[in-house]
Design a protein around this nucleic acid. Structure first.
Ligand SMILES: [Mn+2]
Ligand SMILES: [Mn+2]
Ligand SMILES: [Mn+2]
Ligand SMILES: [Mn+2]
Lengths: 216, 216
DNA sequence: TTATAAATTTAGACAAGTCTAAATTTTATG
DNA sequence: CATAAAATTTAGACTTGTCTAAATTTATAA
């Protein structure tokens, strides 16, 4: 099948593809912390295996075969994250690096049993949807808090930044998945916002508002 | 730290060390299915890292540092096997290959939480002892069924052969961990034995008797 | 539209881990 | 004890995945 490095590239290309049709060498290079020259080498290998569409200098996209692998890796990543938080009591900011390793465990049967063991969870600890064993999942309709106005409400359902620093900040402010928020004030100068959550007031910067996602 | 390959070599040397003081290149070569020349290369690397004691042509033994790593890998291997059987309902003959991958997940914290989650199990599904987080475990006193005589009894507590074929055979014959057996007959010609388990009679060959371990 | 900058690829190298074939050392045997 | 056999190591090669430095292509902008 695929090697660990190939799997990481496919997953990376998948994630970058959500924002732009074609993914550039430099985008991949930045995202997986590898030199552009090394990325080019790998892109050739993945193209030879027909996992990506690649034309020199033009960037890449996943083939259906490549996307299938990518989604399966993401399924494993998110299931293991769920396991770590729900069964082993890790915090949501602690699990990413571990899942980065665990997503490469190869047994299909193991993934499906793990899924069953946990009751077929739909979302991971960060609110990201978990693909089912056929690779199906619904991309729920999220938007940054920064896009709504005063007196509007929403439910916290995801994050755009998965860094431990941001997640720890949110946790400390009680800004966790499932919480209902109402915008009570928007500062027109710096676009900072005041939110009401469970009867308490929380001030967040524009940057936080951009990276915190809600459903209406 | 150590690479996946290094970890597998250390674990292999640890297991072989249980039977002989010094482990030979060919023993390792046979056990991990790698050519002797490749083993020599790796032994040099491990010796450079002071994880093994190595003198050319003389075989190797683990240093305390090497043994510590080996035992930690074994701890992870057995904890994951326990998890797969007890939590995900795999059979005892299905888990080895998966654990062979999972034992390389690096987080120490993860192992300890997994251990706690399962209630600090003492033995893995094959009856092998699980080292605690300090690397301590008691080597219980096992002997092959073939070493006891007529009318002697024992409790099945381990296996010497971990192959799926042998484990499946034992399962089918109800010869599973914890069962109490009594020898009722020994055939002097071929050393086959007749055992009594829970009021039923089971015939086993000398080969099986040699690979099935009991405590008295 | 042509020069410069940015992005990307090519060339050449390296570490890890493996292999085959050949040389060397140790062990066994007459 | 001398020699043949077995075990082990060395030599040289290959694959994967990475790097730096140098070319090449594409994009930008005066
Ligand atoms: Mn990964
Ligand atoms: Mn996640
Ligand atoms: Mn292993
Ligand atoms: Mn076991």
């Amino acid at each position: 099948m695929s090697t660990l490095a190939e799997e990481n590239y496919l997953k990376c290309i998948y994630h970058l593809s959500l924002n732009s049709e074609n993914v550039s060498t430099n985008q991949i290079s930045a995202s997986i912390n590898t030199r552009a020259a090394s990325v080019t080498d790998m892109l050739k290998k993945l193209a030879d295996k027909e996992l990506i569409n690649y034309t020199r200098y033009q960037g890449v996209s996943l083939t259906p075969a490549g996307e299938k692998i990518a989604v399966h890796i993401i399924r494993k990543h998110r299931l293991w994250e769920y396991f770590l938080v729900e069964k082993l009591d890790f915090k949501w900011d602690e699990v990413h690096e571990m899942a980065e390793e665990m997503e490469h465990i190869s047994s299909m049967e193991l993934v499906d049993r793990l899924d069953k063991f946990m009751g077929y969870p739909k979302y991971d600890p960060h609110g990201d949807p978990i693909p089912d064993s056929n690779g199906q999942f619904k991309k729920h309709d999220l938007q940054p808090v920064s896009t709504i106005g005063v007196n509007d409400t929403g439910v916290i359902s995801g994050v755009r930044d998965h860094s431990p620093g941001f997640l720890q900040y949110l946790e400390k402010q009680q800004l966790t998945i499932g919480k209902k928020i109402t915008v009570t004030e928007i500062n027109t100068y710096d676009h900072s916002m005041v939110l009401e959550i469970e009867d308490s007031e929380i001030h967040i910067s524009r940057e936080v508002a951009n990276n915190l996602l809600i459903t209406l």
